[in-house]
């Protein structure tokens, strides 16, 4: 029964150093099942680092992160198992350039989930329809626009049936006219109840989709609250300044 009540992602007292630079200091927050959390803040504030730490792409120096009840810093835990459950979407898409769009979606399904090629392709095609790019299934990523690539990347991560998806500035590398198509896909996922942690500069998206906004600066959580609270009446001076610059 405790598993039901337990948050999907628990971050408690996490600190990380790059050399002597303190990238994260004493970060704690939880993300419960189905919750959408948006992390915002100036560049260098540690928001990407905390996201990457949840997926164990960065190791943390202090504190604890659990995902679905699994402690990711426990050396006995198979980190691949954790990553199977948590998808990640990158700023630079990171599609596999030597594989077609369809193969990008089927690779991990067959290698990690051990699905048959036929099943994997069926799932992949359904997802490509969902993100509106099925007609490019046989194209190579280099032939796609940035927005199209990012939609494929989202579909690729969905193909693993993750319990949560982490978005690391998914629209920051896109031309302005392509941001909308990616945000639309993300909004659809949000409505469907996907657990999402999103690092972004898209304040409109944060306002519309987020259950909770976390504002970070200098590796610390400065302010945390509902979007209404954060965007209309931020209590912290630093958050006010940031908002006045970005809005």
């Amino acid at each position: 029964m405790t598993a039901v009540n337990r948050p999907m992602i628990e971050v408690s007292g996490v600190s990380k150093y790059f050399g002597s630079f303190r990238a994260l200091s004493d970060i704690s927050f939880n993300v419960s099942d189905g919750e959408k959390v948006v992390i915002i803040g100036p560049s260098g504030s540690g928001k990407s680092t905390i996201l990457r730490s949840i997926n164990c792409l960065e190791t943390i120096d202090r504190g604890r992160i659990t995902v679905g009840g699994m402690d990711i810093s426990d050396p006995n835990i198979n980190i691949c198992k954790v990553r199977e459950e948590v998808g990640m979407v990158f700023q630079s898409f990171n599609l596999f350039p030597h594989k077609t769009v369809l193969e990008n979606l089927t690779l991990a399904q067959t290698v990690v989930r051990k699905r048959s090629k036929k099943d994997a392709e069926q799932i992949a095609m359904d997802l490509l329809h969902k993100v509106n790019i099925a007609e490019k299934a046989d194209a190579y990523p280099a032939k796609l626009s940035g927005g199209q690539q990012q939609r494929v990347a989202i579909a690729r991560s969905l193909a693993m049936n993750p319990k949560a998806i982490l978005f690391d500035e998914p629209t920051s590398a896109l031309d302005p006219e392509m941001i909308g198509e990616v945000l639309d896909v993300m909004k659809t996922l949000a409505i469907e109840g996907m657990t999402m942690v999103v690092v972004t500069h898209e304040m409109g998206f944060a306002r519309e989709v987020a259950d909770r906004v976390i504002f970070m600066d200098h590796g610390k959580i400065v302010e945390e609250g509902t979007p209404e609270h954060f965007f209309t009446a931020p209590s912290h001076e630093r958050a006010k300044l940031f908002l006045s610059q970005i809005l």
Binding site: L57, C80, E84, N94, L95, V112
Partner: peptide, 13 residues
Amino acid sequence: PKGQMEAALSLGM
């Protein structure tokens, strides 16, 4: 690019 390894790892490989 480093992102290729990261993308593969994040898919559970």
